[in-house]
Design a protein around this nucleic acid. Sequence first.
DNA 1: TTACACTATGTACCTAGGTACATGGTCAAG
DNA 2: CTTGACCATGTACCTAGGTACATAGTGTAA
Lengths: 137, 137
Amino acid sequence: MPLTIGQVATAADVNIQTIRYYERRGLFPTPRRTPAGYRQYADDAVARLRFIKHAQELGFSLKEIQELLGLRVRHGAACDAVERKTREKIELVQERIRDLHRMKRTLERLAAACAARQPTDDCPILEALEDHGDVDH
Amino acid sequence: MPLTIGQVATAADVNIQTIRYYERRGLFPTPRRTPAGYRQYADDAVARLRFIKHAQELGFSLKEIQELLGLRVRHGAACDAVERKTREKIELVQERIRDLHRMKRTLERLAAACAARQPTDDCPILEALEDHGDVDH
DNA sequence: TTACACTATGTACCTAGGTACATGGTCAAG
DNA sequence: CTTGACCATGTACCTAGGTACATAGTGTAA
């Protein structure tokens, strides 16, 4: 039994307008309609919305998310391409993780220095930041 | 020898307007001025800009970055507070890393399934997404 | 001393990602 | 058969994070 846009919105905890916005943007397939023009969604629409929100929190843009979701569409014959694109995204994610690890180490150095309360009274965050910023970018 | 805004902008590869924007936003301290009103920066301004850009790539908002940078300012007496705030940020970064790891595993599962080219012809990305989205949020 | 690159301020504009509002149709309950 | 909660479209507006433009002062090199 299909869901209305309001039910989907409530289940995924997003605004109705947002769903329509995603549809316009192409992140959401145009759904079937009732004779009266009401949108009808299957349950996976909720999962899709949750994925979008989650991916956004991880810093992916809607465009990137659209690509991620698009991987599903062209399957079968285009499976090679799907795999390639997926591996690219994995690389991207891996890089982001590495960067965050560096950021974490920077912060840990700061916290440690702070805890040691050095007699110099000079909190080393700026030097830490320079180290951080120059590691590889 | 102090740098002009243009020199800083060039060195850090950002727009001049962006530096002034950051100043308005409070991310950048108001610099000393020449008698004519020209802003004068020390070398660390460049490091600061690079840090901001880097933190942004990691998904921090300007507000969060402002907080990160602010940790340096209230040092000495407020060192406890600095350490507490820093540890909070570390927690946040750690969480982001965990999320990205989950995202990566999701993508890896997809790539693997794709490589195996299952006879069912059904690329499992949506199920993968549901798993992903429901792990702990 | 004039030309040109640079700086200043203020205001306007832009993209991304929504959110709200106005207006009107739909449908189920009473 | 009306009322209230939904849905539709279209357009306007909002925040974040810039970027551009107009206008005017500065500084240096020919």
